[in-house]
């Protein structure tokens, strides 16, 4: 689509683009370029000498057991967050889509966690699960379960997954509900008249019609779990205990900001950039396809 009638102007369009381009060049392209360049360099421990090492930072990375651990953590964490957040949201959206009294109120009460920052979501769950001040944390202790997410890696992972997924349910809920409401009633009535049971109707008629939404949400949820959950991990576990909850994004931060290992941190940034580019490409291919429907 393109405008047929267009303004003429030699200078004005460029002037209008200046602010956006200035910010983009200085704060996006320049640092991204530096990340790529730094990923091929190595500094000595005192930052006195820098040498060009080509791909050595990358080969070191893929031999580093701690990095591979972070890869596994990220995979497990992301799959669990996306699965939980999508499953819970789909279930709630199906319920809220039914013709019941108070549907609008339920909707309002289910969407507000979207506004809670990931780090704040983590803090709220900390208040509940803290071993000595939390309601549920003390409940576990009372039941004879040794509960302390600050010591037990599995429990720490469960906590960060729960807090991260909790925050994302609202987003998915809004999209699933919009998807459900766009299914024509005639389709549902036809299935009902054919005598299909509600469960069967859901899996054979409704779910296939929702699958484009579900796929789009899956990609968004993975991006969220990869990149936006830094706050959850930083606020709750700081990647620990040990490295049990250290994800890729958290490790870039630790290596760059705390360990000041710039070459390795830059190489990790480049790996992450490749992942974002791949996920964004998938997302846009899908959106393009949906436009053609």
């Amino acid at each position: 689509m393109r405008k047929k009638v267009i303004f003429r102007g030699a200078l004005l369009p460029y002037l209008l683009l200046v602010p956006q381009m200035a910010v983009t060049l200085v704060f996006f392209f320049w640092p991204a370029g530096m990340a790529v360049w730094q990923s091929t360099l190595r500094q000595d421990a005192f930052g006195l000498r820098t040498e060009f090492v080509a791909f050595e930072n990358f080969t070191d990375l893929f031999r580093d057991e701690r990095y591979l651990g972070a890869v596994l953590n990220t995979a497990f964490f992301s799959a669990a967050v996306a699965g939980l957040a999508l499953g819970a949201a789909l279930f709630l959206a199906v319920q809220a889509d039914k013709k019941i009294r108070g549907a609008g109120l339920y909707k309002t009460l289910l969407i507000w966690p979207y506004a809670v920052a990931p780090a704040l979501a983590a803090v709220l769950w900390l208040f509940l699960f803290h071993p000595s001040i939390g309601l549920i944390g003390r409940g576990f202790t009372a039941l004879g379960i040794t509960w302390d997410y600050r010591v037990n890696g599995g429990q720490a992972m469960a906590m960060v997954i729960l807090a991260a997924a909790w925050k994302q349910v609202s987003y998915n809920f809004i999209f699933f509900l919009a998807g459900l409401q766009s299914i024509p009633t005639s389709v549902l009535e036809a299935a009902a008249i054919d005598g299909a049971r509600p469960m069967r109707r859901f899996w054979t008629v409704i779910f296939p019609l929702l699958s484009p939404t579900a796929f789009f949400l899956l990609v968004v949820n993975l991006v969220y779990a990869f990149f936006d959950t830094f706050g959850v991990i930083h606020a709750l576990t700081q990647g620990g205990p040990g490295n049990a909850t250290e994800t890729l994004i958290y490790k870039v931060y630790v290596d760059g900001v705390q360990n000041l290992n710039l070459g390795s941190s830059a190489a990790q940034s480049v790996v992450l950039m490749v992942i974002v580019i791949a996920l964004t490409a998938i997302q846009f291919r899908f959106i393009e396809r949906r436009v053609h429907y």
Binding site: F27, P31, M34, A35, F227, V252, S269
Partner: peptide, 13 residues
């Protein structure tokens, strides 16, 4: 290029 993937260089800028 979300800020999370270019933390250190952006900080240097």
């Amino acid at each position: 290029l979300p800020v999370e993937v270019r933390i250190i260089p952006t900080f240097q800028v």
